[in-house]
Computed example of a mutant assay.
Amino acid sequence: MPLSDTLDKDNSVTVSNEGDSNSEAPAGDSRPLAIEARGLVKRFEGTTAVDGVDISVPEGAIYGILGPNGAGKTTTLRMLLGIIDPDEGLRRVFGHDEPHEIAKLIGYLPEERGLYPSMKAYEAIGFMGALRGMPLEEGKARGRELLENHGLAHAADRQIRQLSKGMAQTVQLLGTLVHRPKLVVLDEPFSGLDAINQGKLERMIRELAENGTTVIFSTHVIHHAERLCEGVAIIAGGKVPYAGSVEAARDRIPAQVRLETRERDGRWRSALPEDARREGDFWYFSLPESGIETLLRALIEGEAGILSLSIERAGLHDAFVHIAGEAAARALEADNAAEAAR
């Protein structure tokens, strides 16, 4: 099934496998695509788990798959990597229709963590590198180097069973990176980490992108996606109602203005937008499409006496609610509450 390049309303590009493999990134971005997919569908025993996923991830980008548990995030990642095949649709990684053929270029951290408990930390990292074609001894040496670079040199010769949960997760992450992949795919990488280790992981992800590595991760925690990602796919119930830049998602909701005036009434009131409402000492309304300048002029000329005025853009949480709906947002909040309680 040939695919042609199409530009959607959010200025994200879905790219085809028609012609050569040098597919283009989203509009305004000259980078080639690391990952491209269109119309991915996956069914399990008659139940549709993923229903028509379209995403495009430029090389060197940090990209998030954001949604509640059970939304289809893991299934989507596994289809993109070629671990499972879609029932419908196409996906390509670095221009290859069969991602497993370029497994050496990919580092994958699954949600289900698994290390041999009797292995020493540096050995576990080397072993994971060997699974991607790296010579075992080279991987072990690189494992010691990575552990030292991340402040864990003291843990290199400890068995996995002797490490804390956070340290063991870091070892598995380093094993994902030991062979210097061009694409790193992380499934719920922040799950189970305390705040300190979450911060370390965020810095690691940024460093990877700064060095040209493409990073795609799934998460049910909005602030990780908002802080790290330039692009995001919002997924709920197996569908992706939005895939594009984080900025464009936030811009789907008009910025909100908070205005405080000395005068409570006057001819300047007619200049306020139709959705303006008063709460206590403040007026609240959407930022006019024409900008704030015309309104400011009317307020000044009308002697409203501006005491304060602030403009606040919508956050990714508000955008998620707007795009995916309140039910998906409640499910996301329930997932976060459940994890915090563990």
Results as ranks from 00 to 15, higher is better:
Asn11Arg: 13
Gly28Ser: 05
Gly28Phe: 02
Ala34Lys: 03
Ala37Ser: 13
Arg38Asp: 02
Glu45Met: 10
Ala49Asn: 04
Ala49Glu: 01
Val57His: 03
Pro58Gly: 02
Glu59Asn: 06
Glu59His: 01
Ala71Asp: 01
Val93Arg: 00
Glu101Tyr: 07
Ile106Ser: 01
Glu112Ala: 15
Glu112Val: 15
Met128Phe: 13
Gly129Gln: 13
Pro135Ala: 10
Pro135Asp: 10
Leu136Gly: 07
Glu148Ile: 02
Ala153Met: 10
Ser164Thr: 15
Met167Ala: 13
Leu174Asp: 13
Val178Gln: 05
Arg180Asn: 14
Val184His: 03
Asp187Trp: 05
Pro189Glu: 05
Asp194Phe: 11
Asp194Thr: 15
Ala209Tyr: 14
Thr214Met: 05
Ile222Gln: 01
Ile222Asn: 01
Arg227Asp: 15
Ala233Glu: 04
Gly238Thr: 13
Gly238Phe: 08
Gln256Ser: 14
Glu263His: 14
Arg264Glu: 11
Asp265Val: 11
Gly266Ile: 15
Ser270Cys: 04
Leu272Gly: 09
Pro273Val: 04
Asp275His: 10
Asp281Cys: 03
Phe282Cys: 08
Ser286Gly: 02
Leu287Val: 05
Arg297Lys: 11
Arg297Glu: 10
Glu303Gln: 13
Ala304Arg: 02
Gly305Val: 14
Gly305Lys: 06
Asp318Lys: 11
Ile323Arg: 12
Ala331His: 15
